[in-house]
Design a binder for these strands. Structure first.
Lengths: 210, 210, 210, 210
DNA sequence: CATGAATGAGTCTTCATTCAT
DNA sequence: CATGAATGAAGACTCATTCAT
């Protein structure tokens, strides 16, 4: 049983090693730019071994995306639950997205890429749709709260909840991109923290009625 | 001399043809996704000919980026000059950036790419700095007007002009990314136009004093 | 001893299981098209286990071939014995060959394969000669009856018994190839049954004196 | 013009070299057994070059098949025209098939392979259908003459022309396979020639009324 | 200058075989 | 004996780059 468990552990370790290497490489070099060779080198495993754990480069990519999205989903639910007010919940979504993207940039990068047409090449329609569906789920999650706010008279009647969610998402994404730059030639980190708050406050303020 | 000038003209035409094909293809398919084959097909010139004008695929890419930034600079100056009010000028910068990015996505792409490690690998330090300098120049250009606004009492005294510029830039970028998606699975184009206006109005409103 | 014999039985069972899976797969998909993976899956045994019983994929292939030829030999003897008349015996050989080939295509395949250079490459001279010897044994077996027929005045004096056997063999082979096509795009199975009978009747009629 | 023609000639030569190497290799080793490496080595050209002339291994394979079938078609028409009698024409088809297969064995082998299910793996449905269509065209060509014979009262009324064509084809194929064996361990060439005539005579005799 | 044929390094993927457990 | 994870040598195919014409 000890022996078995050592073997099993090795398998799990290998799988994780491949996964993590993939996360890092896909995130740094994108789908096309990442080679199986690089993954195998980084893990110290052979190329063939990668195929024991994932049936193709694309599946591996999809797994990385999905795992990241699920991690985000969990964190989101937790943080939103903590807040009572509608505004607090919406703000929590916004800031959780930013905070999670900063902590697990791979997911952000990978979704960001998929989202830009040119990186879609070589990725199957199905994988694409799976991920787009996940994104839309998050957008709808946010829209729900916005709608509640409209119904409660807190937000403007003429606000399109879905459009507002997208706006928030894209603004956050725009800022995260900047924040992820390791080399802060353009802006310091302190200002960024400030921008995160400033931007969501601005957004919420704009959404409020009168 | 006539002969010579005709030949010279031909050279210029060829170079331009390659340039334009490259702009379109790099912008639609990215660096890796664009093949020399595609460029040569689109221009009607041979693959070998491309190498007479540019010493490598990468050099061509950089040339295209740089030219795009210069084009943007020109357009920006022109549009800003048209507006009298400070707010109008700032809005002009914001919207010119969006409009130009939609029309010549290449420029937008190159700047976005800088954010991603993988593109830095293929680009020399000098070129990188050149492009970052160009970006900061634009940011400072915007900051100038914001500062004017603060001095004139139109904008809040506590506004950081540079940070505000960056915020505008990133918000615009987040939206452009979405807009550049040809396949509007997530949002329709009409809503986007609306978002462009909504976002800058929101930003300016947030910046104003009181 | 009971323990031992149970273990021994298990060994025999495993060997047989591998053998049968190999027969089915080699016959359906050929040597190259059959993977160890498929064999191991079909038997429920691991890939490594296959190597405990056979030292390579090729050895397994040869074993399967040889066993098939022996099976055919047995069936042939049995069916021929049942028939009293010379013609009946010859017909029995012909039809047993066809029927056996349809039921255990592997045997048929291996003999056919011998005709093709590519299979000779992977097979040792000795094995090749063994198989050719087996074929000639069958041909001579048939020739014997034909010779009897000539001696008895039933068949034409000028008939070459060995050549006639070969003719029968090749005709049967030509038809079997067609019949083994699972996808009856070219001819339906009913017509095939008819062709089997038609062909041997034609052959025997042609062989008869007068 | 001399220069141009030398270049053009080189292209034609290369294409032919690839074609011939492919014919030989496909015929000797089958589709799966033939590697691009082998083709490139045999021609002295690089692997990449093969792809300049044929867009895939499969296309090359298809080309080889088609060219062979067309060569056969031409020869067939010529030889059939020479004969006046129906029986002569049918015999001409039969013998032309044999003679052509002996002279250009690649085509025979390649078609023979396609015909056996296991070699179909890795070959697209389209290629397969193209070749099956060509085979059926030949079969129908033969059937036409058989039908004429039935209508003219020369052949038995109950003869199925298409089935008879197939029978002839398979018998011929069975004999050719044997004849193509370079190493005449089983039968000498003289006997084979005799078998070719014997078999068609037998077939025609069987087809005749009464 | 222009061409485009040729190259060969590089990419994903498969699979027979080995070996530590 | 049995396992199945790991390997690495191919294999088909792509593409930036070169070079003879």
């Amino acid at each position: 049983m000890n022996q078995l468990s050592r073997r099993e552990q090795k398998k799990i370790d290998n799988r994780n090693a491949i996964f993590e290497a993939a996360e890092e490489l896909f995130s740094a070099r994108g789908f096309q730019g990442t080679t199986l060779e690089a993954i195998s080198e980084m893990t110290g495993l052979s190329k063939g071994t990668v195929y024991l754990y994932f049936k193709s480069k694309e599946e591996l990519y999809l797994m990385v995306c999905i795992k990241g999205l699920e991690g985000f989903r969990g964190e989101l639910a937790k943080n939103v639950k903590k807040k009572k007010s509608l505004e607090g919940k919406i703000k929590a979504i916004y800031l959780t997205f930013i905070e999670y993207s900063m902590r697990v940039p791979m997911v952000f990068r990978v979704v960001q890429d998929l989202f830009v047409e040119r990186f879609r090449q070589n990725i199957s329609e199905k994988t694409l749709n799976d991920i787009i569906a996940a994104i839309m789920e998050f957008l709808n999650y946010g829209s729900g709260f916005v709608q509640e706010g409209i119904d409660a008279g807190v937000f403007r009647k003429d606000l399109d909840p879905y459009a507002f969610s997208i706006l928030c998402w894209r603004i956050a994404a725009g800022l995260i991109e900047l924040a992820l730059l390791k080399d802060p030639k353009i802006v310091e980190h302190d200002s960024l923290e400030h921008m995160f708050d400033m931007s969501i406050d601005l957004l919420l303020q704009g959404a409020k009625s009168d």
